[in-house]
């Protein structure tokens, strides 16, 4: 009992209950606006029956050739709406759009320490493709897992064969 709909500008005025969560970054407006203008179909929000924003997903499609893929930029669910499988719902939507765009795979970055998220993505069919060193800057820099899931176009699942060595952020393509 949730409504999934496209994210609208005015949602920025009421997504506080999601964004006050410490792991959810609040970006400057240009960041959201760029996604809304460029990849509107990849920016979806979940609304509860009484109109509260429960969570949202932001993503995009990019890359060329066999690197053409869907990317999850941000995914967050407000604390009171966790344990309802909402993140999975949002991820499914993003995968479906990526399928329609004939992408090879979907990828995302997650903090190595965020075990809950890593476990959840694994459950949704994602695997660690590589580790990115000091991807997150902060008081102490933190590594990221680059996790991937192959889509139907990548029949041999070449895109998810794990890299045996970690890479630096500047080596990302």
């Amino acid at each position: 009992m949730t409504t999934i709909r496209p994210f609208r500008c005015e949602d920025l005025f009421c997504f506080n209950n999601v964004n006050l969560d410490p792991l959810t970054e609040t970006y400057g407006l240009p960041f959201y606006m760029q996604y809304l203008a460029h990849w509107p179909e990849y920016f979806q929000v979940l609304e509860s029956p009484n109109g509260v924003i429960m969570g949202y997903i932001m993503g995009k499609a990019e890359g060329s050739g066999e690197q053409w893929h869907g990317h999850v930029t941000a995914l967050s669910v407000a604390p009171e709406f966790r344990r309802l499988g909402l993140a999975g719902k949002l991820m499914n939507g993003l995968e479906e759009i990526s399928e329609r765009k004939w992408c090879y795979f979907v990828d995302l970055f997650v903090r190595v320490s965020n075990q809950v998220a890593v476990a959840m993505y694994k459950k949704l069919g994602y695997s660690v493709y590589r580790q990115v060193l000091e991807y997150y800057s902060g008081d102490v820099d933190e590594d990221a897992y680059d996790m991937r899931k192959a889509l139907s176009r990548d029949k041999e699942k070449k895109s998810v064969i794990p890299l045996p060595y970690p890479v630096r952020p500047d080596e990302l393509d």
């Binding site: 809304l36 203008a37 509107p40």
Partner: peptide, 28 residues
């Protein structure tokens, strides 16, 4: 200062439906 950049991207990417939305958002 940055508001007009979003409008420009909307023209660039053809997300015409957003343009009026952005204008209203900026007003708000």
């Amino acid at each position: 200062k940055e508001a007009s950049e979003h409008l420009m991207s909307s023209y660039k990417f053809g997300s015409f439906g957003r343009i009026q939305e952005f204008v209203k958002f900026q007003d708000r």
